[in-house]
Design a protein around this nucleic acid. Sequence first.
DNA 1: TCGATGTATTCTGCTATACCGAACACAGTT
DNA 2: AACTGTGTTCGGTATAGCAGAATACATCGA
Lengths: 272, 272
Amino acid sequence: MTEAANSDDKYTLRSLGRALDVLQALGSASGMGMSVGEVADAIGVSRSTAFSLLQTLVARGFVSDNRLGGARLYRLGLALVHLGDQAAAGLGITQIATPVLQQLTDTTQLTSRLAVLDDGYAVAISRVDAPGPFRMSGSLGRRELPHCSAVGKSLMMRLPEEKIMAILTRLGMPRRTEQTITSQAELIADLRLAAVRGYAFDNEEDNVGVICIGAAIYDRTGEAAAALSVTTMKLGRSEDDMHQLGFVVRSYADRISQLLGGPAHAALEPVA
Amino acid sequence: MTEAANSDDKYTLRSLGRALDVLQALGSASGMGMSVGEVADAIGVSRSTAFSLLQTLVARGFVSDNRLGGARLYRLGLALVHLGDQAAAGLGITQIATPVLQQLTDTTQLTSRLAVLDDGYAVAISRVDAPGPFRMSGSLGRRELPHCSAVGKSLMMRLPEEKIMAILTRLGMPRRTEQTITSQAELIADLRLAAVRGYAFDNEEDNVGVICIGAAIYDRTGEAAAALSVTTMKLGRSEDDMHQLGFVVRSYADRISQLLGGPAHAALEPVA
DNA sequence: TCGATGTATTCTGCTATACCGAACACAGTT
DNA sequence: AACTGTGTTCGGTATAGCAGAATACATCGA
């Protein structure tokens, strides 16, 4: 009579699931790391169980530990850096697009990101930070809601309406700021407009004061394989500025599409 | 009476260890991914066991699967991108140093990398690719032998001799190219020279035709907390060029040291 | 110096669980 | 349509993983 508060399907392994919980708990831990007890509490197991999990993870480099006197603090290990890099590189598009991201950042002086659709979410897989000490980079690999992000909109904008609605219904459209679009009809109108332009805006819809401009990358099949975006402060950007950036972003996206053998924006049929 | 071909300590979990094997196998898989059977063979378990492991990993996003007809190919998932990014960001130094890496790449037009010492190995935790289509980036998070890398040498160059020898003895000094330094005495002489200069070379010692120039970053304690390097082709670079790059790299490393509150190269005592 | 207190680590036994082998389902192929 | 190579499910069993208790260790305070 297990509680079974967690397990989903029938062929899942408990200890492994808990180990993944440990990794995610350590990932969202702030500061120096977590102790065995904190990990145990975070994932709801006994200290000895947490200890075993951590021992195994440490032995393989997935977690690293710093001894501070009698205490021991655990944090994510460098083996994960390697796997994360391999996971991103395995997508292929990363390899091709990242040099172009570099150029986009060089010409715009803005942070640029590359993202793909994963289970409906927008997930950034590569990033080139703007020069200067502006920490606006945003983490890689995090699942972001597509209705309030420029890359999310870019990835969805040419999808058939029923697929868009399915995603939005499944993930919801929570309000993140005053500007967030929270109605499906309104968002679809916004997406159709973006589709004809070839670039999408996040106009302070996710974070106040921050805007993003995104465009889609198309592969041989004509599907949106990825999207890229630049991020900047709203602060004194006119609407003209945003459209001008839209042209630039779209042209770099087209460049990547061509590298993939896919169509540029101008070559696409109007969306159904 | 277990075979125990794998397990190290006594508090390690078998299924978890196998799952980590799966991830590493998928990481080094080329192409589209691996099937259940390939995974099973790679880690030495039955297909049903591999299936359970993969099910659990897929459910959590650590592995993603692409169905191709009746076949199913597994690859590393995007959750790992997130964890890897968090693991690198958790080091703190990454956050501080990466903008400076950007500047270093901007001024030199070369790929730059940031690395730390992990268990004696040099491990890159951040990277800024050179502009242009030159694919010379080198993977993140991979454990690299320190005796034939510029960052490895930079990290070791001010260590006491017995610690250097301990690392070299433990990891070995395999020959990678004609130029690789394979004797401890010779390498220590090279390191001491690098320590007085403040920058270290990898002069085709790891890959033929490729050179790196590295320098160390010091924290408040005066220990080398990290190292950075630029990578370029040997092709027609004079010795003067390399020293000039050495000055540049060292000055950027010093800049990061100062951000950390540590001493610049010029402020350090001669190494014992 | 010596407890007191909070950790981490080790031990122990029970039982659920993860494992394997084998059976089944499903596609693509000849 | 049978064949062949997959992926997926099932069932029984040994064992591996779990929790709780006992121990070791360190830091802090008196």
